[in-house]
Amino acid sequence: MADVEQVLRETVRKLLQEQKVCRVIGYARGSSALRSTPVFIEDEKDADSLVFDITCGNNLTQYLKKCGKAGDGRVGIVAKGCDGRAVVQYIAEGQVKREGILIIGIPCEGVLDHRKACDKTQGREVSEYRIEGEKVVLKGKDFEVSLDKFDVLSDSCRRCRYPSPPVHDVFITEPKEAASQEPECKEFDEFEKLDASERWAFFENEFSKCIRCYACRNACPMCYCEECFVDQSNPQWFGKSTDLSDTMIFHIVRVLHTAGRCVDCGACERACPLGINLGLLNKKVEKEIQERFGYTSGLDPDETPAMAAFDEEDKQEFIL
């Protein structure tokens, strides 16, 4: 990744120098070797703090609305495939203007699920890591473990089809082709085969862990409502406690609100402090919308999102 980082820093420095952008949203090294943190670069001198590697898991798109002040010039964003798709979705939904954003595409190999890595090292501090082919080697004070990269990748990255942003203004090295078809997702296929009561039990179990911290919602680029339905108090739709029916409905409605918009970046799942499986529901809805309405989110900024459109010929086999 070292040369990707070099090219990235060089590119950003140049963009800032030539005043093509007023600031760039990217990643900097976080407080440990396995963490990165969002950073906003305005001064070309700071471009050297940019990093890009498998620890860059945040979806930066959600900062676009905070970052772009009127009359400020373009905002640059370092975009993996999923960040890029979220930007496209923002454009399609009229949240940002295409000309206000400069998409710096970057080839993604998938990002780490911090929790999975943590489990494998019994929570010990990892001071450095390196990639050796399909292996990730984590090194700490008195240990070194070599893991299959697949095992520590975020679930959404394992089933990712679009490693590079579909739209970009500059690209760091070469874009990677999208997979010609949906990668197979064993976890999902096997889950679908379970019977209804098993599936319900699974979700009850998952959502019973929820502490209503809303990290999933706040980390999600698509959850940009000024006021979320669970925060409304007049009327207050649902209870605020950790009652199972309230938490489940929160998650169901969040999935519905991001239906046809979710780019399966997995930011929600990685943000969850308790490791709740949030991706299955998103994936199901994404698939349904693809099959039913032929729409995939975040690919074409000019296409009306599926749930804001209709077709007179839409299937209606479920309607009496």
């Binding site: 679908e192 209804a196 009561s197 098993e198 599936r199 319900w200 039990a201 699974f202 979700f203 169901i252 999935v255 519905l256 239906a259 046809g260 529901l281 199901k284 809805v285 349904e288 919308i289 039913r292 749930m307 839409d314 299937k315 209606q316 479920f318």
Partner: peptide, 11 residues
């Protein structure tokens, strides 16, 4: 359509 699919997927 989406609501029904989602609820039935959940069980």
């Amino acid at each position: 359509a989406v609501l029904k699919t989602l609820l039935e997927f959940m069980g």
